[in-house]
Write a protein that binds this DNA or RNA. Structure first.
Length: 1174
RNA sequence: GCCCGAAUGGCGGAAUUGGUAGACGCGCACGACUCAAAAUCGUGUUCCUUCGGGAGUGAGAGUUCGAUUCUCUCUUCGGGCACCA
C-alpha cells in the first residue's frame, strides 16, 4: 500500500471531475428535488483566497455534495464581483488598467478555489465586470427607472474625500468610509437614487417568511426602522399678530410646520418646537425671523460639522427663532420655535414638537435653555392586585411624627408601615385611602384623578422596577409643595423607607445625581427631582394627565383619541415613518457599469413649458361607469389637497353611456389657458380623453392607469371575450370609427412625461398587447406593470394608490432620458484616465460620447457616472441560472426551475447592504411580473470569522495571516477543508490552530491506513455495527443542519472504534468512506476506486442506517440518590420498571447512600435515569 | 445611551424535550517501537483530596426529585444601532 499522498490524488481527481463534467448542472429538475446552493459573491482581491473564503466555499460544497448524495439535483455555482473600488484603487496605485489586474486576479482566485475541490458547475462562472453581465445590471437600472424607482436628486450626500466618491449609508461605518476609513463629509450633489423606501413595508413583511438567522432579521428590521405615529401640523405666526387674525382659520396659511411624532398622546406637553437647521422650514420663515444673523451663523456652524462630530458632541445646542411663534393645535398655546442640530433634516419632516417631560433629548435641551417642562403622562400603572407575592405597589409617602411614612399595597391589602404583622395592620382599605389622601393631598393613581404634582406614582407589580425607582430616589409629596428625596439601597430597600428628615436628607446627599436640584427655601428643603431617565417615561405607557380630553386615558388610548381628533379638525393624521433611506447608486468612479441614461442641458421640451417642482393643477378623469367617489379618486383628492395642490375630479357626463365628444368637452372646460404645469391623470376609458387633450394642449405630465388603447378594435382585439352588444354599442359610441387616429407626434411633443400603469391580471386591458401598443407609439413613456392589480379598482385594494400619487407629484425631468433596452450594454470605454479628480473619469473619455448626438439627437450626452457595485451583486444569483443568455437576465424557465436559492452562505457584514438590496431587486421583479416569488434566499446562514492563531483578527499588521493555499500545499485540500469545518460551529468566530490542522491530517492518515486491516470475512462485531449505524444517522442529521464540527467528531469516533479491531469488515469501511466523501472528496474518491469502484463516489447514494441496528439489547443507566449520581447499572432493554428499581436498590453504593432509610419516592425515567429520594 | 448575543478543563469546543457534564480534537504525561529522534500505536488527562469522598458549566438567588439547559438579579466579553422624534 502506498502512503496517503494528497498532492497526487487531489490533482488526479480534480482533473477527473473536470474532464468528466461530474458536476455539470442536472437537467431533470423538479421543484421538489432541486437544490440551489449559493456561496456569497467574492471580490477577487490581489492577495488571493483568504481562509474566510475557503470556509464559505467548503461549507457550501460539503452541503452540496451531501445533498447530491441524498438524491437532490444540485446547482452549485461560483462567480466574482470584479467591478468596484478595490480594483480601481489598486489600478490607481500601480497605474495598471483594472481590466488587466482583474484578469490576473481572476485566474489566480479561480485556480485557488478549484484547488479546494469544490463541486461547482464551472460553465456557469460569471464576472460582474464582463459586458455580457453588466448589460443586465444596466437593464435592471432601466427597469427601476421605468417603474419610477430610479430618480436623480440634489441633496446632501455622504462623500469620501479620499475615494472621491459618494457613499451609500450602508458604506459609512461609524462616520468613516468603509474602504479607506476617511471621515465622511456631507456634500450637496445631484445623484441617482433607487427608491428602496417604497419597499420598506414589503421588505419588512417578507422577513417573517424566510429562514434566516434571527439576529440578521432583527438587524434588517431595525435598519428599516418602522415607527407608527402621527403627522401634526403647527401653524406659525409672526409675533405681534393679533389674536383675532390668528383665530380666523385661513385655509391658505403659508407657514405650517408639520412634525412627525410617535407620541401624539403627549401633544399637550409640547412646549416648544425644534427645526433641523439645514431644513427647508427655516428658509421658509427667513423673512419673518428677526434674529436671522444669529440663526444663519448657527446653520453655518452645523453644516461644517461632520456626522461624526454630531455623534460625538451630544451636548445640546440651538438658537431660538425670534419673531415667529407656533401654536400648539391641541390647546392653542403659543410656543417658541428653535433650531438645533439634534433634529436631523432627513428623518420625518425635519421638525419636531418637543415634549421635554417625556423625551430625553427634549428634556436635556429644555433644561439647558430653561424651557418649560410639562408632565402629561403619569408614571405608574400596572395592576397591583396582580402578580407575585413580592409585588408591591407604593402609593406614596407622608411625613408624620418626624418620620416618613410609606403607603404601599401588597396584594389586596393596604398596609401602613412601620412594623406590625399583616394582621395587625390590616385596615379598611377605603378608610385608609381616604385618610391618606386627606393628609397628603395626594390622590392615588385612579385614572383621571391624577394631579400634576402628585408625582410619586411608584406603582408597579414588578419588584425589579420598584427597586429601580426606590434606589434612584424617593420623592415625597408633603404639604406646602415641599419635596424630600430618599434613597433606597438595592439589597435592603426597606431600610431607608423609615427615616427622619435628617436621615433622608443625608441619604439623599450621599446619592446626589445630576438630575436632582435641592434648594433650601429657608422653611425647609425643596427638592426638585427629574426622573433620571425620561426615556422610560416615553417608552413606558402611562396614564395621560394635564391633557384636557385625554386625561385618564392610557397612552395607547390617548394616541388613538388624539389622532382621531387631529384628523377630524384637520391638524394632522396617522403616519408610518421609516428610518430606511433611498439608496444612492451613482459613483464618480471609473470601474463600474455606466448608467444607461442620457442627459441634456435643456430642461424643457418646448419654448412655453416650464416645470416647477410641483404641478400647479391636477385634473383627474374617472373611468366608464365610474365616478369621482370611486376607487382611488377620493384618496388622491384628499392627499393633493393636503399638499396644497389644486385638483379636480369632475363627474363626466353620462358615465354609463359615455360619448367621446361629451367627455372631451367636459374636461376641456375644467382646464385653464396655461396648462403647461398641469398633470392629467386618467383611468381606463378616459385615458383616451387625456391623450386627445394632449394633441392640442401642453401638459406637464399624463398619468394613465389601465388605458384603453385608442383604436376602434379595442374591444375586439384586446377586450375580454363575450362582450354583449350593449357594450359594443357603448364602446363604438365612444370611440366612433377612429382608427389609430391620435397624433402621437404632437402628444409626445406636448407632454413633459407620460406614465402608463398596467396590471398583469386586468380583465379589460390586456397587459402585453397594450404595452406593445404604447411602446410603439410613445416609446419614451414609462410603463409600470403592477402585479395582480386587476383594473386598479377598489376590489384589488386600490382605494389607496401611493406610487400613483408619487408620479403626480414627481418633478418632471425632460433633461433625462433612458436608453432603449436594445442599445444595451453601454460599454465601459478603456481610453480613460482613471485617476480620481472628483469628476467622473468617463467625462474625460474621448470615445464615450462618440455618435451619441447622431443617434439620440442634438444636445444629448451619456451619463458619465457609474453604478455602485452593490447593484451588480443585487441580482447575480439570477444570472447563474442562465449565464449565456444575451436577451434576458435569465429565462423565465430557468428562473422557475431553480429559484429561490435553497441555501445561501455569506458574511454578516452585508446584512444592511447587499442582503437588503437583493431582496429589494427580487421584490421589484416580482411586482413587475417577471418572477413568482418575492424572497430570493429561502435559507440563509452566516459564517463566522476565522481569527489568527493569536486570537486576533487576521491582518498583515499582526503578521498572523494564514494563507489557505499554503495549507493546501502542505497538508492537502481535504485536510484544509476538514480542519476549517472542525474548528467549531460555522457561524461563530474561532481562532486558527496549527496543531489542529495536523490533527486532521492524522485522522485522514488513519482512515487511509485502515486499508491494512481490511478483511471481507472478518466476524461482524455487533457493537461496531451499531456504532456505524449511529454514525450514519448522526452525520446525516448534523449535515442537514450544518453541524459540521460534530459530524466530523462522530466520524473520528468511528475510526477510533475501527482501530480497536484487529480486522475491519470491508463493507463497514466502504460505509465510512461514503460518509467521509462530502468532507474530504479526494481521498474518498481514491479509496473508492482502490476498493474497486468505477464510478465517482460523488454520485454514490448516501448510506442509509438501519433503525433496528441502532439499539442494542442492553444499556447503561445512572442511578441517583437525592439527585446525585451514585451508581451506574446495565439494564436489559426490555426490563420492567420494577426490575430496574430492584436492581438499582441492590447496588452496594446505593445502599450505602440510602443509609438504611426507606426511599420516600422513586423517579424512574425509562431508560434514562432512576432517582431515589429519601 | 439603547438593542441583541455569549460565558463550560491548560486550549478549540460537545452535551436531544431539564436526566451519568467535559464527546471529538489540540496540548500535556507515561508506555511500546527505536541506538536515538521524528512518525506511528497504546494508556491516562476538570479541580481538590487525609483516597472514604468533596467541589464543579462567569457570580448570586429561584423553580424542580434532578438545571450547562427554565426564571430573576449582577459581572465580564463580543456584536449591532446611535440625537430616527
Amino acid at each position: 500500500m502506498e502512503n496517503y499522498n494528497p498532492k497526487l490524488i487531489e490533482a488526479k481527481w480534480q482533473k477527473h471531475w473536470e474532464e468528466h463534467k461530474t458536476f455539470a448542472t442536472p437537467e431533470d429538475v423538479t421543484p421538489e428535488n432541486k437544490c440551489y446552493i449559493l456561496p456569497q459573491l467574492p471580490y477577487p482581491s490581489g492577495s488571493g483566497l483568504h481562509v474566510g473564503h475557503a470556509e464559505v466555499y467548503t461549507a457550501c460544497d460539503i452541503y452540496a455534495r451531501y445533498q447530491r448524495m441524498k438524491g437532490k439535483k444540485v446547482l452549485q455555482v461560483f462567480g466574482l464581483d470584479s467591478f468596484g473600488l478595490p480594483a480601481e484603487n489598486y489600478a490607481i496605485k500601480t497605474n495598471v488598467h483594472p481590466q488587466e489586474t482583474i484578469d490576473k486576479t481572476t485566474e489566480n482566485f479561480v485556480s485557488q478555489v478549484k484547488a479546494l475541490g469544490v463541486s461547482v458547475d464551472w460553465d456557469r462562472f460569471v464576472r460582474s465586470s464582463d459586458p455580457g453581465y453588466y448589460k443586465f445590471t444596466q437593464w435592471f437600472f432601466l427597469l427601476m427607472y421605468e417603474r419610477g424607482l430610479a430618480y436623480r436628486k440634489k441633496q446632501a450626500v455622504n462623500w469620501c474625500e479620499s475615494c472621491k466618491t459618494v457613499l451609500a449609508n450602508a458604506q459609512v461605518v461609524d462616520g468613516h468610509c468603509e474602504r479607506c476609513d476617511t471621515v465622511v463629509i456631507q456634500k450637496e450633489m445631484e445623484q441617482w437614487y433607487l427608491k428602496i423606501t417604497d419597499y420598506a413595508d414589503k421588505l419588512l413583511e417578507g422577513l417573517d417568511r424566510i429562514d434566516w438567522p434571527a439576529e440578521t432579521i432583527k438587524r434588517q428590521k431595525d435598519w428599516i426602522g418602522r415607527s407608527e405615529g402621527a403627522l401634526i401640523q403647527f401653524n406659525v405666526y409672526e409675533v405681534g399678530e393679533s389674536a383675532d387674525i390668528r383665530n380666523t382659520k385661513s385655509t391658505k396659511l403659508r407657514n405650517v410646520i408639520e412634525v412627525f411624532t410617535t407620541r401624539p398622546d403627549t401633544l399637550f406637553g409640547a412646549t416648544y418646537m425644534v427645526l433641523a437647521p439645514e431644513g427647508q422650514y427655516v428658509q421658509d420663515l427667513k423673512d419673518n425671523i428677526t434674529n436671522w444673523d444669529e440663526v444663519e451663523k448657527y446653520i453655518e456652524e452645523t453644516s461644517k460639522k461632520t456626522d461624526l462630530d454630531r455623534q460625538i458632541e451630544k451636548d445640546k445646542t440651538g438658537v431660538e427663532l425670534k419673531g415667529v411663534k407656533a401654536v400648539n393645535p391641541a390647546n392653542d398655546e403659543e410656543i417658541p420655535i428653535w433650531i438645533a442640530d439634534y433634529v436631523i433634516a432627513t428623518y420625518g419632516t425635519g421638525a419636531i414638537m418637543a415634549v421635554p417631560a417625556h423625551d430625553e433629548r427634549d428634556f436635556e435641551f429644555a433644561k439647558k435653555f430653561g424651557l418649560p417642562i410639562r408632565e402629561v403622562v403619569a408614571k405608574d400603572i400596572g395592576d397591583p392586585l396582580e402578580g407575585e407575592e413580592k409585588s408591591v405597589g407604593v402609593y406614596g409617602l407622608l411625613e408624620r411624627d418626624g418620620k416618613v411614612l410609606v403607603m404601599y399595597e401588597k396584594k389586596n391589602d393596604l398596609y401602613r408601615l412601620p412594623g406590625g404583622t399583616q394582621e395587625e395592620n390590616e385596615t379598611d382599605y377605603e378608610t385608609l385611602k381616604r385618610e391618606f389622601a386627606e393628609e397628603t393631598g395626594y390622590i392615588n393613581n385612579m385614572p383621571g384623578e391624577c394631579k400634576g404634582q402628585v408625582g410619586v406614582h411608584f406603582l408597579t407589580t414588578k419588584s425589579k422596577e420598584l427597586k429601580h425607582y426606590i434606589r434612584k430616589i424617593f420623592s415625597v409629596q408633603l404639604k406646602n409643595e415641599e419635596k424630600v428625596a430618599l434613597y433606597g439601597e438595592d439589597k435592603d430597600i426597606y431600610e431607608y423607607i423609615w427615616m427622619t428628615r435628617e436621615e433622608a436628607v443625608s441619604a439623599f446627599e450621599r446619592n446626589k445625581t445630576s438630575n436632582v436640584y435641592p434648594h433650601d427655601t429657608g422653611e425647609g428643603l425643596l427638592v426638585k427631582y427629574y426622573f433620571d431617565g425620561y426615556d422610560e417615561c416615553v417608552s413606558e405607557p402611562g396614564i395621560t394627565i394635564n391633557s384636557d380630553f385625554l386625561n385618564g386615558l392610557t397612552t395607547e388610548e390617548a394616541k388613538t383619541a388624539i389622532i382621531d381628533w387631529l384628523e377630524k379638525n384637520g391638524h394632522g393624521k396617522r403616519k408610518v415613518q421609516y428610518k430606511l433611506r433611498d439608496w444612492s447608486v451613482s459613483r464618480q468612479r471609473f470601474w463600474g457599469a455606466p448608467i444607461p441614461m442620457l442627459t441634456s442641458q435643456k430642461s424643457i421640451k418646448s419654448e412655453s413649458q416650464k416645470f416647477d417642482e410641483l404641478p400647479d393643477f391636477v385634473l383627474n378623469l374617472h373611468a366608464w361607469g365610474s365616478d369621482p367617489q370611486s376607487h382611488f379618486h377620493p384618496w388622491i383628492s384628499k392627499e393633493l389637497a393636503e399638499k396644497h395642490i389644486v385638483s379636480i375630479t369632475p363627474l363626466l357626463p353620462h358615465p354609463e353611456h359615455p360619448k367621446f365628444n361629451d367627455w372631451l368637452e367636459a374636461t376641456q372646460k375644467e382646464l385653464s389657458k396655461d396648462t403647461t404645469n398641469t398633470v392629467v391623470t386618467a383611468r381606463s376609458l378616459s385615458c383616451w380623453i387625456a391623450l386627445a387633450l394632449a394633441q392640442t394642449m401642453e401638459f406637464r405630465k399624463l398619468v394613465l392607469v389601465a388605458p384603453s388603447t385608442p383604436t376602434k378594435d379595442w374591444y375586439i382585439g384586446f377586450g375580454r371575450e363575450g362582450w354583449g352588444d350593449a357594450e359594443k354599442e357603448i364602446a363604438l359610441a365612444f370611440f366612433g370609427d377612429k382608427e389609430d387616429c391620435l397624433d402621437f407626434k404632437k402628444i409626445r411633443k406636448n407632454v413633459g412625461e407620460i406614465v402608463i400603469y398596467l396590471s398583469t391580471n386586468d380583465p379589460y386591458i390586456p397587459c402585453d398587447a397594450t404595452k406593445k401598443y404604447f411602446e410603439k407609439y410613445i416609446p419614451e413613456a414609462r410603463i409600470i406593470i403592477e402585479r395582480d392589480a386587476g383594473h386598479f379598482d377598489i376590489e384589488h385594494g386600490y382605494n389607496i394608490f401611493s406610487s400613483f400619487l408619487d408620479e403626480i407629484m414627481r418633478e418632471v425631468r425632460p433633461d433625462l432620458r433612458p436608453l432603449p433596452e436594445s442599445d444595451l450594454p453601454v460599454i465601459l470605454p478603456d481610453d480613460v484616465d482613471f485617476k480620481p479628480t472628483g469628476q467622473s473619469p468617463l467625462t474625460y473619455s474621448p470615445s464615450f460620447q462618440d455618435g451619441v448626438e447622431e443617434k439620440y439627437g442634438k444636445g444629448w450626452k451619456r451619463e458619465v457616472d457609474t453604478l455602485d457595485t452593490f447593484m451588480c451583486s443585487s441580482w447575480y444569483f439570477f444570472r447563474y441560472l442562465d449565464p449565456h443568455n444575451e436577451k434576458e437576465f435569465a429565462s423565465p424557465e430557468a428562473l422557475k426551475k431553480w429559484m429561490p436559492v435553497d441555501f445561501y452562505l455569506g458574511g454578516p457584514e452585508h446584512v444592511n447592504g447587499h442582503l437588503l438590496y437583493a431582496r429589494f431587486f427580487t421584490k421589484v421583479l416580482y411586482d413587475a411580473g417577471y418572477i413568482d416569488f418575492d424572497e430570493p434566499f429561502t435559507v440563509h446562514r452566516h459564517q463566522g470569522l476565522i481569527l489568527g492563531p493569536d486570537g486576533r483578527k487576521m491582518s498583515k499588521r499582526w503578521e498572523n495571516v494564514i494563507n489557505p493555499t499554503d495549507v493546501v500545499n502542505e497538508f492537502g485540500a481535504d485536510t484544509m477543508r476538514m480542519y476549517e469545518m472542525f474548528m467549531g460551529p460555522m457561524e461563530e468566530d474561532k481562532p486558527w490552530d496549527e496543531n489542529g490542522v495536523k490533527g486532521i491530517k492524522r485522522f485522514l492518515d488513519r482512515v487511509w491506513n485502515l486499508q491494512d486491516r481490511l478483511s471481507d470475512n472478518a466476524k461482524l462485531d455487533l457493537e461496531l455495527d451499531r456504532k456505524l449505524h449511529h454514525t450514519i444517522q448522526k452525520v446525516g442529521d448534523d449535515l442537514s443542519k450544518l453541524g459540521f464540527n460534530t459530524a466530523i467528531a462522530k466520524l473520528m469516533e468511528l475510526v477510533n472504534e475501527f482501530y480497536k479491531q484487529e480486522k475491519v469488515l470491508l463493507t463497514s469501511y466502504q460505509s465510512l468512506v461514503t460518509l467521509l466523501a462530502p468532507f474530504a472528496p479526494h481521498i474518498s474518491e481514491e479509496l473508492w476506486s482502490i476498493l474497486g469502484h468505477k464510478d465517482s463516489i460523488s454520485l454514490e447514494a448516501w448510506s442509509a442506517y438501519d433503525e433496528d441496528k441502532l439499539t442494542g439489547d442492553k444499556l447503561s443507566m445512572a442511578v441517583q440518590v437525592n439527585g446525585k449520581v451514585r451508581a451506574s447499572i446495565v439494564i436489559s432493554i426490555d426490563a420492567t420498571d420494577d426490575e430496574v428499581e430492584s436492581m438499582a436498590l441492590a447496588q452496594p453504593n446505593v445502599v450505602k447512600w440510602l443509609g438504611g432509610q426507606e426511599p420516600k419516592k422513586v423517579i424512574y425515567v425509562k431508560g434514562r435515569i432512576l432517582n431515589i429520594v429519601v
